[in-house]
Simulated assay, not measured.
Amino acid sequence: MKYCHLWLLIPGGWLLTALMQMITTPALAQTANFGTISLSVGFEPSQGKVSGYMGGSYSLSTMSNRDRDQKACIGFADPNPDHIMILEKDFEKLKILVNSGGYDTTLFIKGPNEETVRCGDDTGRSKDASVSDKDWKKGTYRIWVGTFNPGVKHNYTLTIEQN
């Protein structure tokens, strides 16, 4: 038994590598910094509004450099998602918008089943981010509201709209 732990000390050991990845990669959290929102088709506009504060030093591009449409995924946020959105049915179209009063924000949305990534940055002339897309499958989505620069913190309102 005294030799069991020696392989942990061997440079390049597979377990050491795996442990380091677990330590430096955020877990796919089951909880969010600012809660969970559940939506069904035909939801009231007030049900699609949540708020929080953005910011952090975790680079969102480490989770994915590009989304499903090859848009760049950028920004900095907390390693845990800010919101969890549960879609109780498939949605043909959704639009997710950040209102931070004009600060430079980004969006990173992952789900369902961690398979689909959607990213957003500036919306038109606004520095606030948005994602407008079709084919939202039933399931759980993790949403990060990021900032263009690390360590910046500002309040925001996140609005989810049916198109």
Rank of each mutant, 00 (worst) to 15 (best):
M85A: 11
R66P: 11
T140W: 05
Q21V: 06
I10Q: 12
G75H: 00
S126C: 02
G12P: 02
L28T: 03
L8M: 09
K127F: 11
S57M: 09
D133R: 06
L15S: 09
Y103K: 03
M85P: 14
W14R: 09
L8Y: 12
S100V: 05
K110D: 12
T106H: 02
G101F: 11
F76C: 10
R68G: 13
T159Q: 13
G56T: 08
N113V: 04
T62M: 02
N80L: 08
L158A: 10
L6E: 14
G124N: 01
W144L: 00
N113L: 01
Y156N: 02
L97T: 07
I160T: 12
S100D: 04
N80T: 10
I96M: 13
K110I: 02
K134Y: 10
Y58N: 05
N65H: 10
D104Y: 01
D135C: 03
G146C: 08
N80P: 02
E161K: 13
Y103G: 02
I96Y: 08
K93E: 14
S130T: 07
A32Y: 11
E92T: 15
I86K: 15
G55A: 03
T116M: 04
E92C: 12
G75S: 00
L60G: 00
P150S: 08
G55R: 04
D121S: 06
I96F: 05
M20Y: 05
K138D: 04
G111M: 06
P150V: 09
G124L: 00
L158W: 08
E44V: 00
D90S: 13
E44N: 06
E44L: 00
Y3V: 03
E114N: 12
K110Y: 12
K153V: 01
C119S: 06
R118G: 00
D135E: 14
G120F: 04
D69R: 11
T36S: 12
R142C: 05
Y103Q: 00
T147I: 04
P150F: 08
I96V: 13
Q70F: 13
N113I: 01
S38C: 03
G52W: 03
A29D: 06
Q47I: 10
K49L: 02
Q70R: 13
D82Q: 11
T36E: 15
M22C: 05
G120L: 02
C119G: 03
C4Y: 15
F76A: 11
D128H: 11
C4G: 13
M54E: 06
I143P: 04
S130F: 01
T25F: 08
L16Q: 07
D90N: 15
G124H: 01
L107Q: 13
P112F: 12
F34Y: 15
M63K: 13
N149S: 12
T17L: 04
T140L: 05
K137Q: 15
S64C: 12
I86W: 14
N33C: 10
Q21F: 09
Y156P: 03
L60M: 05
G102I: 01
L19C: 10
N99C: 05
S126N: 07
K2T: 11
K110M: 08
K137E: 06
L15R: 14
A27T: 07
V41H: 07
T116N: 00
Y156H: 02
H83R: 15
Q21D: 09
A129W: 04
T24Q: 11
W14Y: 09
C73V: 13
N65R: 14
L87A: 12
G55K: 06
A18L: 06
T159L: 09
A29L: 02
R68A: 08
D135I: 00
K110F: 07
S57Y: 08
P26R: 12
Y103A: 01
